[in-house]
Design a protein around this nucleic acid. Structure first.
Lengths: 340, 340
DNA sequence: CCAAAAGGGTAAAGCGCTTAACCTAATATT
DNA sequence: AATATTAGGTTAAGCGCTTTACCCTTTTGG
């Protein structure tokens, strides 16, 4: 009841296993005619080559690791989907690893991926900077996606988070906002830092000073965004706008406003980040900063798979893409009367 | 620059590779003392056993396949996360496969998983019933999750979808609704069928007949839910409530109502299904039917992993869990004046 | 017409690990 | 004291595949 092996095929076709192997891979010495025959036998026997065995022989496993904070977070779910699609179309499969940005988890997963001899790792997770840095030593191709890792000199693709924040700030500034705050997810993650920096910078250029108390560190959840916003709204000089470093937080902000009886965007503008399906589920629809996920993933994949080949040891490449402002309904001039 | 192998460890420790292997796996003949020594050497050499090689020897690959329609769909993203967590805690990793409910994709992925010799497959996808049915023949442990597959006599865990729909119907009925419609995602999927059946049944028992035209087949997307709802709202005798077989559709319904200037829940009640984070992002918050994802996944995993052992060939087990109604804000008595 | 190069195919050596069979020395049994 | 166990280790045979080195026909060119 064992699955068919290359031996079965060879026997049935009356050739050596070497020929079968050659026929499968289309290389080595093999006549066109014989090849057809073998292929036919394979078909008949419903033969499936074992990736395991072929990997052991020093070839690739055609498996990739994807490290992200959490697949249940819509942004990363979208990334996971994009990665899966492009990987699959190239014959790879991907092992998704949700790290929750926790060092131990990152470490455990990296070990695992090593043991499984994946052909490469896509890093979209935060946390474990020092741990991740070790990856540089390993012979494991690595590419970062949507973030950078301090001290990890590998290729990667990201969007310009500083610029994204700048876009958000400009939009809010143009609407006339002066008192603003930012909800910042996990500040250990570079992308989050950049977002804060960019926002602060833009405000600074406009002559507005963003105080430390206006930057609220949050966990990455709706609940936490709500909590932080509620706190913000309780202030005497409450801000007229909040910039959230991701959409979960933005949804939380919306909820908080609603609970506090403060209307968005009339009394409070909120802009999110990532443009996931969440931004399209809220009411009002979220104004947000979009990242070109598909393209990022595509490029990252190419860097990763390509990096095994000629470019091994080449200078790491960092591609940075441009974010875009998607204007929807959650932003307006401060103090605007509600339209409907 | 090759990674350390079992030979390196054996040489360094002055023992045979068999002993190293025994030391690692804690079985076979090996003295306590020698074992410690070997472990120490492994540590020092930073040795990581190759899962590939050990799998080839007939052991397990410690990899699972997860077939779902789409990881980017919040419900399945949550399932994927739960699966990942429990699998990881048991030493397994999982290859997520988004099939979009398309037969070719299902087929391709199954082939792939076979070639990779996964230890088991978790099926949460729709589509490819006939293709999936073949799985029964294979020596590949399979368990369905959150759905059944016609003609696939394998174990599985699901929630009682019929009952879930019944809960929704009872709620709506109790509120006084008479004219209702349902937005049904892909009717090829058993869970969707059951949901429709259950809803229809409850209405029937209450003396209300659900016409075919009141059951709108939809693709699984916000857009499509919106489209269908818009159509519904254009009718003369438009329904006062919609039951959506998933949350994406429910969000679409909400959007449609808003666009049509119909207020929810005052003029239209909508109930969703799945209780994902979407239901908590909308405004009004979605009344919905919740499935116990964590538990389902846990049980499914146990069935899958356990099924390799003693129970091989045993009668397939089907566990069914109970759904719950989560009452939020999107439902109310028909014709109710808005409260705020 | 013969040597040389091609073309087509095969045997066999691994890849890194597990395990059954086997061996040896120490301990238990009568 | 002689034999039977047992504990602790080792050897070697694979697992299913790739690939190198080698061999045997055909062509081909001079």
């Amino acid at each position: 009841m064992k699955p068919t092996t290359i031996y079965d095929v060879a026997r049935e076709a009356g050739v050596s296993i070497a020929s079968v192997s050659n026929a499968i891979n289309g290389k080595g010495k093999i006549g066109k005619k014989k090849r057809e025959e073998i292929l036919k036998v394979m078909e008949r026997l419903n033969y499936q080559p074992s990736v395991i065995a072929s990997a052991l022989t020093g070839k690739k496993t055609y498996t990739l690791g994807l490290l992200i904070p959490d697949v249940a977070n819509p942004f990363f779910a979208e990334i996971a989907r994009a990665v899966e699609d492009i990987a699959h179309s190239a014959g790879y499969s991907v092992i998704t690893c949700s790290t929750d940005n926790q060092d131990e988890r990152v470490l455990a997963y990296i070990r695992l991926l090593e043991q499984k001899s994946v052909d490469g790792i896509l890093i979209g997770t935060g946390g474990g900077a020092d741990i991740l840095a070790q990856l540089a030593e390993k012979p494991l191709p690595t590419v970062t996606i949507a973030r950078e890792v301090q001290g990890l000199p590998v290729s990667g693709v990201a969007t310009d988070d500083f610029r994204g924040a700048t876009l958000a700030a400009a939009h809010l500034l143009a609407l006339g906002h002066r008192r603003m705050a930012v909800l910042a997810e996990d500040l250990k993650v570079s992308s989050s830092q950049e977002r804060v920096r960019g926002f602060r910078f833009s405000l600074f250029e406009a002559g507005i000073r963003l105080e430390d108390r206006d930057i609220l560190p949050c966990a990455s959840s709706i609940e936490d965004g709500k909590r932080a916003t509620l706190e913000l709204l309780r202030r005497e000089d409450r801000p007229t706008a909040v910039f959230c470093s991701n959409e979960l937080l933005a949804v939380g902000a919306l909820q908080a406003a609603r609970e506090a009886g403060i209307s968005v965007p009339a009394e409070l503008s909120v802009v999110g980040y990532d443009n996931t399906l969440l931004s399209t589920a809220t009411n009002p629809l979220l104004t947000t900063i979009a990242q070109p996920i598909e393209q990022m993933v595509k490029l990252a994949f190419e860097l990763l798979i390509g990096s095994g080949q000629e470019s091994a040891g080449l200078v790491p490449q960092r591609i940075v893409m441009q974010p875009e402002l998607v204007e929807r309904e959650s932003t307006a001039m401060p103090g605007t009367a509600e339209l409907d």
